[in-house]
Design a protein around this nucleic acid. Sequence first.
RNA 1: GUCAGGGUAGCUCAACGGCGGAGCAGGGCUUUCAUAAGGCCAAGGUUGUGGGUUCGAGUCCCACCCCUGACACCA
Length: 480
Amino acid sequence: MKKFYITTSLPYVNAPPHIGFALEIVQADILARHRRLAGDEVVFNTGTDEHGLKVYRQALAEKKDPQAYADEYAKKFELLKDALNLSYTDFIRTTDPRHMRAAQEFWRRCEKSGDIEKKAYKIKYCVGCELEKTDSELTDGRCPVHPNLALETIEEENYFFKFSKYQKKLLDFYDGHPDFVVPDFRFNEIRKFVAGGVNDFSISRLKEKMPWGVPVPGDDSHVMYVWFDALVNYISTLGWPEDEKKFRDFWPGVQVAGKDNLRQQTAMWQAMLMSAGLPNSRQVFIHGFVNVAGGKMSKSVGNVVDPLELVRAYGTDAVRFWLAREVNPFEDSDFTLERFKESYNANLANGLGNFASRVTALAADTEFVLSKLAVSKEVEQAIADSREACRRKLAGFAFNEAITAVLELIRFGDAYVNEKKPWETKDAAVIYDLTVILDNVAALIAPFLPKTAEAITKCIRHTDGKVSVDRCPTLFPRIA
RNA sequence: GUCAGGGUAGCUCAACGGCGGAGCAGGGCUUUCAUAAGGCCAAGGUUGUGGGUUCGAGUCCCACCCCUGACACCA
């Protein structure tokens, strides 16, 4: 049995899950289910990233213990499991003791490789906000909130990771693995970034200022900068370093991450793995963002789409369908309720749901004796084409096109019914053809819409050499 | 500002330099097995703008306009 490991990135617990993370985890779930159905043994990991300044600050602001605060948010992410019918096998929290031990061991290995050193770290500090500012937070070198106050520069000692040492090795690695990052344009982006020169990055924070992190081994005055610890989750979840067998069986794996994570996943983490003497990730798939009516989702605008709310209104598979079929896997996409409904009615109600309904109604009175029936060549070909297209598209993370291949089979089936008029002819061979098409549609759609596939499959009963069919209930009622 | 990618039907997207396509939405016809569903047909375009190369340009070149992303510590 082949082993397959796939993981999402870990969402940071300073906000409830939004549709963007739902996208990522559903994409990963589709691939996990696809591989499982193909017979692989699958580890599918997700979890929560719980350390760092933002969690610490927000916990303080809400007068909560950081761990209690993280617990509360981790629970919200776990709610997604039922809502979206996710099949992950592992849920790692970066505050799990085993993860923290792994992060520390990882640190020691990088240290042993001579890749961790203490250096002066310059911080820009806005006296007005009384906060550290990163360059990307500044406009024209000034705090946007207090543009007439000069920023202060504070120096402190931090541990740094010798990223620069890995520039050449990363470029060589990229050259040797042309499919390492999907899509291509993201791969080019990171290649160019690394080729342009990489600087060592800070991987610790002074504990007295920010205690909410994994303690740095051998130095009580520092905790790890959240990135360093969080990235290790991809292997700590596999039991590294203790569970060598599971680690060897499943690592390296496929990582799914958003475009904001490109550098961390495809360059920094890879350099860290090299430093620790571990194999690089197998592949990183970078998805785009879900925008709302062309604009970014933001709490202040109040346009955040809550995946749980959508599920309540339209059902799990309707939401999974939208994420897989209407979102461009590689680019940003817009969410609008209007398009969501249009797609639902066109593809799920009129398409898949109606097809299941008409085929099972036609087949319900017939008992098929398999020895007397053969699927027509034409139908066989249509099924084979659809299956092959679906498999190929999924291998390239083109979830939307994979579903299109299934929809084409449904379209073929609908035309086949109209053409053959089995309600007139009562031709058992034709009705059997249709049953087989429906059965295959269910199998192909299963990674995307597991509940729906199950509901269809349940209607088609196989008993020693015979097939009989029950009428399928309405799968997707039309919505106004 | 620099670099990269893009601008094609109302919407989402296809089109090795060779007659601009598909799905959805909207329109017409039609069927009754099916969820007011299905099928068929037609319509829908100055391919961002202006030049150039070419027998021929959505595609190549130049200029301009617009959009998106990256430009490091955003966890």
